[in-house]
């Protein structure tokens, strides 16, 4: 039955895909070869839509792929199967953290991890700045600055620093400005 095979295939992806976002992509390509659920060109549209709708890209892709294969229930089953291994693992890890909350080893581990998380977030910021504020170029030194985008970015940053407004207002402002000005 299609629902069982969807559940099983996406459960397997949920077990092995580490690194989030597009980490599920190679496995989905593999499904285009293994099954007739959807084709590789369809995947490209799925990526475009998944990246521009709210929510984690992996979940959006799974819902989309599951929908292509098994309609409404297919999308739900694929997404839930994908998150199941991770959620169970988080329950186990969460329990362990509560138990060893004050263990010196755990404190040492988190002492090392926190600056690395700061670096990962700085990297995310750098990647998104590259995509939005520099022109596409083979190497970084030849890329041109996109001044309108940079100006808008700095304006938003000033607004964020000055006022404690909800992030969604900034996103809404970005959407409206994007509809008017071509960045």
């Amino acid at each position: 039955m299609i629902y069982w095979s969807l559940f099983w295939e996406f459960l397997k992806i949920g077990f092995v895909a580490i690194g989030g976002g597009l980490a599920t992509l190679p496995f989905l390509y593999n499904l285009t070869v293994k099954t007739n659920w959807f084709t590789a060109p369809m995947l490209v549209d799925m990526i475009a839509i998944s990246e521009s709708t709210p929510g984690p890209i992996g979940i959006n892709m799974a819902t989309y792929a599951g929908f292509s294969a098994g309609s409404y229930f297919g999308g739900i089953i694929a997404s839930l199967a994908l998150i199941l291994p991770g959620v169970i693992l988080m329950m186990i890890i969460g329990g362990a953290i509560q138990k060893f909350k004050n263990s010196p080893l755990l404190l040492k581990i988190f002492y090392g991890i926190r600056p690395a998380v700061a670096a990962l977030i700085a990297y995310a910021a750098w990647e998104i700045i590259k995509v939005t504020m520099l022109t596409q170029s083979t190497d970084l030194w030849n890329a041109q600055l996109k001044y309108p985008a940079i100006g808008f970015f700095l304006l938003l940053l000033v607004v964020l620093k000055r006022f404690k407004i909800h992030p969604i207002l900034i996103i809404g402002f970005g959407a409206i400005t994007g509809a008017i000005i071509q960045f």
Binding site: S52, I128, F153, L156, L160, G178, F183
Partner: peptide
């Protein structure tokens, strides 16, 4: 729609830098 999302991405960049 693509253009709107270009605007949203700049907003997301500002949000991430601010939180960072």
């Amino acid at each position: 729609v693509t253009q709107i999302f270009a605007g949203i991405r700049i907003a997301v960049a500002a949000l991430i830098i601010n939180t960072a």
